[in-house]
């Protein structure tokens, strides 16, 4: 049984590393966007379109990293659209996000038809297997560079939000547009830039899905991961480092269902498979409190008002 326990533990570790990256990229991008005072619910569409364009471009160009770049650029176009539309008076950022989610997935499915079957060049992992002799761990330690880029980005974003002029402006815009305006900051421009960067990151997250893990393009590829990642931002209290923790937790919990079944614990697998959601909800309930308002919540953010 201890063998089984180890297997499950290692599987959860491996799952955390493998599955977390798209969540990480989307939630980092969304954290920045939300810190500037807007919410972009449309990142599911951006993620799916990013996944499709990455796979298509990788297939057509033969270079997976070109695919990643294309996904990022495609994502930033969606981000720009959101940023631009929402500056118009009386336009709801939540609603535009939902519209872009529909539009993005629609376009991705439309143009992605021809790329379901072909095999595109995928991203390669960096092999840290030499660190261990355990065969299962060896596999778990094959890690895609995007994972490390995501981790680094989280640290940079966390630091930059707290310590740089850029970070200050973003936070100020997010907390009080009036103050920002009084300081001579163009609120719309800041939010436009923040949403564009958010879109770029979500697109890259999609590239990870189609070009690395699970590593193929089809219409069921995301099944709501982008939406979940946006939700994880609230869970992470807009803290980029917490986004890392949330993404890892979600990835690890997602590995639980398959891992338990692989060692023969299969009764009630529906609930094991829903473990990420159950766990997230439980933590959310345990860690929230009506006494204090959400710490770190940007004052201008519509969804937490």
């Amino acid at each position: 049984m201890s063998d089984a326990l180890t297997t499950v533990a290692v599987a959860m570790f491996a799952g955390a590393v493998r599955v977390s990256t798209p969540f990480l990229f989307v939630s980092l991008g969304e954290a920045l966007t939300e810190k500037s005072g807007r919410i972009n619910l449309g990142l599911e569409g951006t993620l799916v379109f990013g996944a499709m364009s990455a796979y298509a471009v990788s297939y057509l160009s033969g270079s997976p990293w070109t695919g990643v770049l294309a996904a990022g650029l495609a994502g930033s176009v969606f981000g720009m659209a959101h940023g631009f539309f929402c500056r118009l008076p009386k336009v709801s950022d939540i609603a535009i996000g939902i519209a872009l989610m529909l539009f993005g997935t629609g376009l991705a499915f439309f143009f992605g038809k021809g790329f379901i079957q072909p095999t595109a060049p995928r991203l390669q992992a960096i092999d840290f297997g030499f660190l261990t002799s355990d065969p299962q761990l060896k596999v778990a330690l094959q890690i895609n560079p995007l994972f490390f880029i995501g981790l680094a980005l989280a640290v940079v974003l966390w630091w930059a939000l707290a310590n740089t002029r850029f970070g200050l402006i973003v936070r100020m815009t997010g907390d009080s547009a009036a103050t920002a305006k009084a300081m001579g900051v163009s609120v719309d421009l800041v939010r436009f830039v923040a949403t564009t960067i958010g879109g770029f990151l979500a697109g890259v997250g999609g590239a990870f899905l189609s070009l690395y893990y699970p590593g193929s393009w089809n219409e069921g590829l995301s099944s709501g991961q982008g939406l979940m990642a946006v939700a994880l931002v609230i869970f992470s209290r807009w803290n980029p480092l917490m986004c890392v923790a949330a993404a890892l937790l979600f990835g690890a919990a997602g590995a639980l269902g398959p891992a338990l079944q692989s060692v023969g614990i299969s009764q009630g697998y529906h609930f094991f498979n829903a473990a990420p959601h159950i766990l997230t909800l439980a933590i959310l309930i345990a860690s929230s409190s009506s006494k204090r308002s959400l710490k770190g919540a940007p004052g201008e953010l519509s969804i937490t008002k």
Partner: peptide
């Protein structure tokens, strides 16, 4: 060893299941 993913097209969970079975 059988793993039920719960639905017809869940690519991420299918990949996780494949890895879990290989690990087992």
């Amino acid at each position: 060893q059988v793993i039920f993913t719960g639905d017809w097209a869940l690519p991420v969970r299918e990949a996780e299941a494949a890895n879990a079975l290989a690990d087992a």
